[in-house]
């Protein structure tokens, strides 16, 4: 298993390439990337605002981490590769083919068959038990390899999740089975309020897995208040290194971006998100009987009776 150990930063805060640095991305890929990054940031703002109005569930923004999420996801071919997410990679799932309106509808509590991952979209469900998704990713990659499929699995985890036993068990098994899986460890410096220095004595998470140095520029999720533990200077420094600003400044210097283009891009993204949110709001609402859906292929007798009891059907008395 290979791990990148050097810090792979090439853009200065002013958008200039570091001395001697070269971008391996084509201009077209860069333009695509910046649009996905902006979409992620704008969706963060919209979802957070909706959550504050009581219209959206708990939400975990990706602000500050867009470059690592988008950059890694763009290495994949949605037709054959798989994404095994944690829960802060929404835009990677959208790029991979999970329609934004379905994700938005789930955020709005409309969690039914209409919001599930469509057939043919190679994405696993988001994972709340941190690092539990990593052994799944290894098994998936191992199985695809056994069936001689030309696929790669990309699995996401954070600096906090890398302390879990599942992280170490998964990396160990992936190495033993030579499974075609890429672990993306997003070290955003925080596990809710626990700083990176209290998470691990390792000098670099990159020694554990291919790492991306990044910074969570927002709260952990909409229930969190970072002012209780975060030094404002850290946020200011992170903002100075905002990945989206840096890429846009870089593109501007190269004549590929200007105010008009910026405005047009943001307008088209807002229109796309508005359309997705509109559709999401009209997704079917949950129904109580659905509690008993998708537990087993066939509902056992005992559960069938419990379902009848809930719905007041077929009383035995």
């Amino acid at each position: 298993m290979k791990a990148m150990t050097a810090r792979q930063s090439i853009l200065k805060p002013d958008g200039r390439l570091l001395n001697g640095a070269k971008s391996s991305m084509t201009d077209a890929a860069l333009m695509e990337a910046v649009r996905w990054m902006l979409m992620s940031r704008i969706y963060d703002e919209r979802a957070t605002a909706l959550q504050r109005q009581g219209l959206y569930g708990v939400f975990s923004p990706a602000a500050g981490q867009e470059a690592s999420v988008v950059g890694s996801a763009m290495a994949l071919d949605p037709a054959r590769d798989w994404i095994v997410p944690q829960y802060r990679e929404l835009i990677a799932l959208v790029r991979h083919g999970y329609p934004l309106e379905r994700l938005a509808a789930m955020g709005m509590g409309r969690i039914t068959h209409a919001t599930r991952i469509p057939e043919g979209v190679n994405v696993l469900p988001t994972q709340v038990a941190l690092a539990a998704q990593l052994p799944h990713a290894v098994g998936l990659a191992w199985g695809l390899k056994l069936q001689k499929k030309d696929s790669v699995v990309m699995a996401y985890v954070g600096d906090g999740g890398s302390s879990e036993g599942d992280f170490h068990e998964a990396l160990n098994l992936a190495g033993v089975r030579q499974a075609p899986v890429v672990f993306v460890l997003q070290n955003n410096q925080w596990a809710i309020s626990t700083p990176r220095r209290m998470q691990s004595a390792t000098s670099s998470f990159a020694l554990r897995a291919a790492g991306y140095v990044t910074y969570r520029m927002s709260f952990h999720n909409t229930t969190d208040n970072p002012s209780l533990y975060e030094d404002p200077k850290q946020r200011d420094e992170a903002s100075r290194r905002d990945p989206i600003d840096r890429v846009i400044k870089h593109l501007t210097r190269r004549g590929l971006w200007n105010d008009e283009r910026d405005e047009q891009t943001r307008m088209s993204i807002r229109a796309e998100i508005d359309a997705a949110l509109d559709k999401a709001a009209s997704f079917p609402a949950v129904t109580p009987g659905q509690l008993f859906d998708d537990i087993y292929a066939e509902l056992p007798e005992r559960l069938r009776r419990q379902r009848e009891e809930l719905l007041g059907e077929g009383s035995k008395e």
Partner: peptide
């Protein structure tokens, strides 16, 4: 965990 992924 790997068995889950293998099954998928």
């Amino acid at each position: 965990g790997a068995s889950l992924g293998l099954a998928i």
